[in-house]
Nucleic acid binder design. Structure first.
Lengths: 158, 158
DNA sequence: TTTTCTGCAAACGGTTTGCATCGCT
DNA sequence: AGCGATGCAAACCGTTTGCAGAAAA
């Protein structure tokens, strides 16, 4: 009910979810995927968002031979399983964040520093229904992102 | 008030708007830009959306030496001036369409055939205000896109 | 003639792919 | 041992950039 839900998530729950997704999608439990899972648990805890490159660079520190493609492949799986949310910024870039299992929500982003806040405003379901009838489309999903400036960036910008 | 506003726009009005934007942003009236304007007027009329490559290929038929970069540069101007809307599809691709001067609206897209319908549902302004207070962000814009399947694609898919 | 804009081609950045090899099971 | 996943490097694709030359003013 509160329009914000930023911040830490339960480590154990997240870890289990990630492993469950990997178990379902793959048939081998490999070291690279374990490393990715671990790092994501950390990122979930701190509520941090990240680019694929961020994640790769992080992991490369402990495993220099880890391949970029592996990170792409895992992130894709986790996005499809909606454990990760992809956040699109106004400038066309995008980042990811662990939002897995949270109720439906959207993102408010700072155009200057790329800070992200989860928000739970949305379109009224009746409107979707109405629109569906009117256009004769089935409406199966939507994306909503708000753009603005956070307090910090407004402060320093003016 | 109707949730749809598809279809033809007034040729003359659109043409004038495009020229006005070019006049404001550039200091030379050039042949390539005139060609782009003309093509966009046609596209506006038919309500068609297009990719940059579509536009380039079209124009190249009458002017084989026209450069891709020129098209990019003009489209960028027109998007910034919000004469063109950029429509992002669920699969990560995007296309453009002439929506210049229409009131605020969003897009309902068909995941299968990329058909686009303009819709005028939106978040209630009070919610933005509320959220702004709560998060201490200034909220300066938003993007909303609905994903689904149109009647045609549902028909043939099932 | 001057200066802007264009066309070209090369660079770019993020992402995907093909394939030999590695390492789970 | 067998086969799925990885690491690597090259390909890819849409977009941007630098620059010499073309064409508006």
């Amino acid at each position: 009910m509160t329009p914000m839900c930023r911040g830490g998530k339960d480590q154990l729950v997240i870890a289990e979810k990630i492993y469950a997704i990997f178990d379902q999608e793959c048939q081998r439990t490999t070291r690279p995927r374990r490393m990715i899972a671990d790092r994501l648990v950390q990122l979930a805890q701190s509520g941090q968002d990240f680019s694929i490159d961020d994640l790769w660079q992080d992991l490369r520190q402990q495993e220099p031979h880890l391949g970029r493609a592996t990170v792409y492949r895992s992130v894709e799986m986790l996005v499809n399983a909606s454990l990760l949310d992809r956040i699109d910024f106004a400038d066309g870039t995008h980042r990811y964040r662990v939002c897995g299992g949270d109720e439906h929500h959207h993102h408010l982003t700072c155009t200057a520093c790329h800070r992200v806040v989860d928000v739970d405003i949305c379109i009224a379901p009746e409107l979707f229904a109405q629109l569906s009838k009117l256009t004769n489309f089935s409406i199966e999903g939507h994306s909503l992102t708000l753009y603005g400036h956070c307090a910090v960036c407004r402060g320093s910008a003016s």
